[in-house]
């Protein structure tokens, strides 16, 4: 039996699992999806949203914006970046860039941590995240988490509030961020989380944290992890919300429809997963011995 084709059905009790806000969100949306994507690691290349080429364009535009933002924040001169944005075949990018340059002065203050990766133990496992930007004000012991959202529509505050990202990011910053704060953990109430929308630059969504919320986040994350650990092979149920399946690549496997849902109706922007950094290690191919 070829063991490399054997797929696990439950978390391996011997191996710590690297959780991220995205995988936890998947679990919250549909346990079955979590199992297929993260436990079984099943590639199932169906369309996420239709039309596929627009969806792709959307995703790539988002990725290009993130890159430009990162470059700007690292100190690359703005002039060439603006030129790149202007030369982009996708006109939306130039507009977004223009929005972003207006935001930039506000980001000048404090210490900037761009594409910041943090991780901390979570029970027997680990929780990781990569932040678009964390702005630290050491004197005040204060931090602002920035997250660029490139979705077509601006999500509702309530929807954002319910996202695991909103829970995980501040929580993890407290857990793993003391080195940014002179060795002291940030106080939860000193952490602010801002979703900034490329398409709606004047309507960012801000969430502040509190000690109580932080404790609650810890409890609910642990509860989630314990729940997942306890699930048996058949315990990962499909979501009862069949609407979710329209934007899920596994829909054919679960026998929940053929075509993907329309891009315009997708609330989540389907950003590429940013967890463990995977550079293309295999540039040099396998050696032919």
């Amino acid at each position: 039996m070829d063991q490399s084709k054997v797929r696990r059905l439950v978390l391996d009790p011997a191996e710590p699992f690297a959780f991220s806000q995205a995988s936890l969100q998947d679990y919250a949306d549909c346990a079955r999806r979590f199992q297929l994507r993260y436990v079984q690691r099943l590639s199932w290349p169906a369309a996420q949203a239709e039309p596929v080429q627009e969806n792709e364009q959307h995703l790539r535009r988002g990725a290009r914006f993130h890159r430009l933002a990162q470059q700007a924040l690292l100190g690359v001169p703005l002039e060439p970046l603006a030129q790149i944005a202007a030369a982009d075949p996708d006109p939306a990018l130039a507009a977004w860039w223009e929005h972003f340059t207006r935001l930039l002065p506000a980001l000048e203050a404090g210490e900037r941590r761009v594409e910041l990766g943090l991780s901390a133990p979570l029970g027997r496992h680990r929780l990781s995240a990569v932040y678009d930007l964390v702005q630290v004000f050491p004197a005040e012991g204060r931090a602002v988490i920035w997250d660029w959202k490139t979705s077509l529509a601006r999500p509702r505050r309530a929807w954002l509030e319910g996202r695991l990202q909103t829970l995980v990011y501040p929580y993890l910053l407290v857990q793993a961020g003391s080195w940014l704060n002179g060795g002291q953990p940030f106080a939860p109430e000193q952490i602010e989380m801002v979703y900034w929308f490329t398409g709606f630059p004047d309507k960012p969504e801000r969430f502040t944290c509190s000690a109580a919320a932080y404790r609650k986040a810890g409890r609910s994350l642990m509860a989630l992890v314990r729940e997942i650990e306890a699930l048996g092979p058949d315990g990962f149920e499909k979501t009862p919300e069949e609407k979710t399946c329209r934007f899920c690549v596994y829909r054919s496997l679960c026998e929940r429809g053929a075509g993907a849902g329309p891009l315009a109706e997708q609330e989540d922007e389907g950003e590429a997963e940013s967890g463990e950094i995977e550079i293309d290690f295999d540039q040099i191919g396998e050696i032919r011995y």
């Binding site: 710590p16 991780s119 133990p121 680990r126 793993a176 950094i277």
Partner: peptide, 13 residues
């Protein structure tokens, strides 16, 4: 680095 034995903090590259 994936194990809980690693202290919390920034990600090692």
């Amino acid at each position: 680095l994936r194990s809980p034995a690693a202290a919390p903090g920034g990600q090692v590259s």
